[in-house]
């Protein structure tokens, strides 16, 4: 067994476009759920809007790459309104149902042959990279070391992704320490109490839904920067991975989503490499390597259960929160 190879591959996941994308999208969930108490089970839908908005603007409309990002943001704001206007005045569960349903609807629409000209149905989209790559400030060459060795294109994607992530972290931090964030956290605790204090609860929830959605969209853009837009990526399981990451890192924390994402990808990729190797090495008889792939999902599920039972506030969550878990 090539253990060093597995470790090195695993280490490379600390800084991959997928990692940055998941961290961004999870920050969005933190704005929704961690700070605002909004149950969004359709973050994959916002990511889809980012990926498709970006690629379609470039491929079908011939717009520059950065305009593609703006289109994605604009579309996600519209999506947030569609989700929020009918549900945010109702009980929290209605938003949850709407988000999971509409995110799936979006995926089925782009995957269907209905809009084949634009979305290329189940095959997805590719070949939209020229603009972004030509904006690359790094000259050709090899950068980095060890598992983190990149060519100039790979480096540019990571740097760009990290800039977005940095802005997102700063933005969420600035919002949540402000009186605006105080109102949002108050709404999470009891919206009637906040209403009684003269705050327009609906408007705050809508703003939270939009901001978190934009972060999901930016994550979606970063996710498609390296290669292609693949509709099968935006399954509900993507959303649930993001939720696992959020709860792992700490839902109402600034750094939780980042830390959670890194841990998630390290464990997830390690298991993906290590479990089949164990089978190949004959340690586990009677199981095929692809069957071990399923075990990986089971372990993620078990991990999620363990987090919720033993550390519901997440790794970075406030310890004092633990004592009040029995609330409500």
């Amino acid at each position: 067994m090539d253990f060093l190879g597995i470790l090195s591959q695993t280490a490379s996941w600390i800084l991959r476009p997928e990692t940055i994308a998941y961290a961004l999208a999870t920050m969005g969930l933190a704005v929704h759920f961690g700070y605002g108490g909004l149950l969004n089970f359709g973050q994959a839908g916002f990511m889809l809007i980012g990926g498709y908005g970006y690629a379609i603007s470039i491929l079908s409309l011939g717009w520059p790459w950065w305009a593609g990002i703006l289109v994605g943001i604009g579309a996600s704001i519209i999506f947030a309104f569609i989700l929020g206007l009918p549900t945010l005045r109702l009980r929290a569960d209605y938003l949850a149902i709407a988000t999971i349903a509409l995110a799936e609807a979006l995926r089925l629409i782009v995957q269907s042959t209905m809009l084949d000209d634009v979305t290329n149905s189940a095959d997805g989209l590719g070949g939209y990279h020229e603009g972004f790559r030509s904006a690359n400030p790094f000259p050709p060459g090899t950068y980095g070391f060890g598992p983190w060795t990149y060519n100039e294109a790979e480096l540019w994607i990571r740097v760009f992704g990290l800039i977005l992530l940095g802005l997102a972290i700063w933005g969420v931090w600035a919002l949540m320490r402000s009186p605006w964030g105080r109102v949002l956290r108050g709404i999470r605790e009891d919206e009637d109490a906040v209403r009684a204090l003269g705050k327009n609860v609906f408007a705050y929830k809508m703003q939270s839904l939009i901001i978190g959605g934009i972060l999901g969209t930016l994550g979606g853009v970063v996710l498609v920067l390296p290669s292609a837009v693949v509709p099968q990526v935006y399954l509900p399981s993507l959303t649930f991975f993001l939720w696992t990451i959020l709860l792992l890192g700490g839902a109402a924390t600034i750094w939780g989503p980042v830390l959670g994402t890194v841990i998630f990808w390290i464990v997830y990729s390690f298991l993906g490499l290590f479990l089949p190797e164990m089978v190949n090495a004959g340690w586990i008889p009677g199981v095929t390597p692809s069957q071990m792939g399923v075990v990986r999902f089971i372990l993620v599920g078990v991990a999620l259960m363990l987090i919720v039972i033993f550390r519901p506030q997440g790794i970075l969550g406030d310890k004092r929160e633990l004592s009040f878990n029995a609330r409500k």
């Binding site: 919002l175 009186p179 105080r182 956290r185 108050g186």
Partner: peptide
């Protein structure tokens, strides 16, 4: 009673004040 459990007592109080410019999205940052 509707205390906002996971906010500090002081934050609960500050939430009660009216006309806070920091509660608007754009000025909050």
């Amino acid at each position: 009673t509707k205390a906002l459990s996971m906010l500090s007592v002081l934050e609960n109080m500050k939430l009660g004040a009216k006309g806070q410019s920091g509660e608007r999205l754009w000025s909050s940052i």
